[in-house]
Amino acid sequence: MKENDCKCEHLWAEFNQTLEKNSGNRSALITVLHKAQELFGYIPREVQIRIAEELEIPLADVYGVVTFYNFFSLKPQGKYKISVCKGTSCYVRGASGVLERFSKTLGVGPGDSTDDGQFSIEVVRCLGACGLSPVMTVNKDVYALVKQESIPEILDKYAAEEVQESATDTLQRDQRET
């Protein structure tokens, strides 16, 4: 993802501001990585190189931090990020089955996203709601006491949102054009 070929100039503009503010400041690494993850949805190589240069941290260290923390990812995340908890409590109450069902339905495993960029799956450890396990989230929506059978319904909800959004877009475009 080069600055000029990613069709994300506006993201780079914002990210460059963050970089400039933290120029030469090694201790800002985590903050800057958070910003990158939030803006780009993942932390591609070009972004890590810019961080290394601007914060004056060896690239091997930047990559070391990115690969140490689960929060940062090296691959693009889906628009809807499904996080299935596999902490102890969720694990014993069937999280593996839930995860497997998601993988089967979407055709991608944990750490990957669907070809259309809509959904990605990841495994997390303990969301702090063990009493309601198994627990999972889709972006900021929390689902408790999840059953395998309810998975199609959950996915449908976001697919429907997509249809809605694209209808709104078309409507807006039509209105602009007329």
Binding site: R45, Q48, P58, L59, A60, D61, V62, Y63, G64, T67, F68
Partner: peptide
């Protein structure tokens, strides 16, 4: 590599059982 040569081309990557000393990426 870091303290004597100030190069640091290698560092620990990943975590736990997957940890490996390697260049970035």
């Amino acid at each position: 590599c870091e303290h004597v040569q100030s190069v640091k081309a290698i560092a620990p990557q990943n975590r736990g059982f997957d940890a490996v000393v390697s260049p970035a990426f």
